[in-house]
């Protein structure tokens, strides 16, 4: 049984998908010969050749725009944006075409494609290398948005994303690319998109997060000790959101705290808060709390840990919500 890091699990998912489906091809900057700046595609060009693993010129719009064309023709392209901060160069393609083709053509031309991008802070990098802007994609009708937080979920979700008949934005938490190894039996799982996971059952409060904030969230839940019973939910898919699981959990606990590193305004916390207000109002014993990045530009790394939700901030929100 192999022990894989999250980034190795991404690599494994790509490899398995390419093995089982010759229409799966990869394109992106530095993904071939050098194996990607995070080594997510390491060894794949050697295995599958330069026709299926394309080192492209430096042009995100071209990468996504051409991936659209390939998908229109019948391939299943998996495009890599080197960092989510450079996906804006392709944003017009994503908003104007990736998200719309199926609907525009009344289903004649679906776009089974995946756009992978590492996102998030805490890695002491330059500007544009640390943001979390998942809300842009979640806000865009027609896209699915997936953010794994563990190696086996990364593997199972990416395989599902590549098999999905619709375009998926697959955001990879680079901060935890290598922070934990997990044993993955056999070829690993193939998940279903749209399913959240209860990673720790509890009775008194539902603590919700995803991606790179999961370790912080779990630490905070652990710090609350045995006196409190906290249920922790990893969203895994931000769109379509697993509303049923969230509502069921909060109907049981009556309290919810949402954690994300993206800015607060119109983030996932806002959406979940509205959802719970609509569907679980009478169960709520306290306002839904949000522990988020601030509504400022992600500071350069000297101050990034003041921006990112910390265990202490999450613990504070848990205490406030429990004692409301």
């Amino acid at each position: 049984m192999d022990k894989l890091t999250l980034v190795q699990a991404v690599n494994r998912a790509l490899q398995l998908s390419m093995q089982e489906d010759p229409d799966v091809i990869l394109l992106g900057q530095d993904i071939g010969k050098s194996g990607g700046v995070f080594r997510a595609t390491e060894g794949l060009m050697e295995k599958f050749g330069v026709d299926r693993v394309m080192d492209t010129p430096l042009a995100e719009s071209a990468i996504v725009g051409c991936a659209v064309g390939m998908a229109l023709y019948g391939l299943k392209p998996v495009a890599e944006m080197q960092f989510s901060g450079f996906a804006y160069q392709a944003f017009h393609q994503i908003e104007q075409h990736v998200s719309r083709y199926r609907n525009r053509t009344r289903g004649e031309y679906p776009l089974p494609m995946v756009i992978r991008m590492p996102y998030g802070g805490g890695v002491r990098a330059f500007e544009h290398h640390s943001e979390s802007r998942e809300a842009y994609y979640v806000h865009t009708p027609g896209l699915k948005v997936v953010v794994p937080s563990t190696p086996s979920d990364a593997l199972g979700l990416l395989r599902a994303a590549i098999r999905d008949p619709d375009p998926v934005i697959f955001m990879e938490p680079k901060k935890i690319y290598r922070s934990l190894k997990e044993e993955i039996p056999g070829d690993g799982p193939i998940h279903r998109l749209g399913e959240a996971k209860v990673v720790r059952p509890g009775e008194q409060l539902t603590l919700i997060s995803y991606g790179a904030m999961m370790p912080v969230t779990l630490d905070a839940a652990a710090q609350m000790g045995a006196d409190y019973s906290i249920e922790v939910i990893d969203l895994r898919t931000l769109k379509p959101l697993d509303e049923a699981s969230l509502v069921a959990s909060v109907q049981k606990t009556g309290r919810a705290v949402v954690v994300h590193e993206a800015p607060r305004t119109l983030g996932m916390g806002a959406e979940i808060s509205a959802l719970l207000m609509e569907k679980a109002l009478l169960s709520l014993k306290a306002p839904v709390a949000r522990v988020t990045g601030y509504d400022v530009q992600m500071p350069y790394y000297q101050l990034e840990n003041h921006y990112l939700p910390s265990v202490a901030r999450v613990v504070q929100a848990l205490r406030d919500t429990l004692s409301y």
């Binding site: 802070g121 805490g122 607060r264 840990n305 990112l308 910390s310 202490a312 901030r313």
Partner: peptide
């Protein structure tokens, strides 16, 4: 709307170490 967020940052009298855990 940003003032309370700024207050929160200032009020965090916590030590923050290199790997982002407070």
């Amino acid at each position: 709307f940003l003032r309370p967020q700024r207050e929160e940052v200032l009020a965090q009298s916590i030590a923050i170490d290199g790997d982002g855990r407070a």
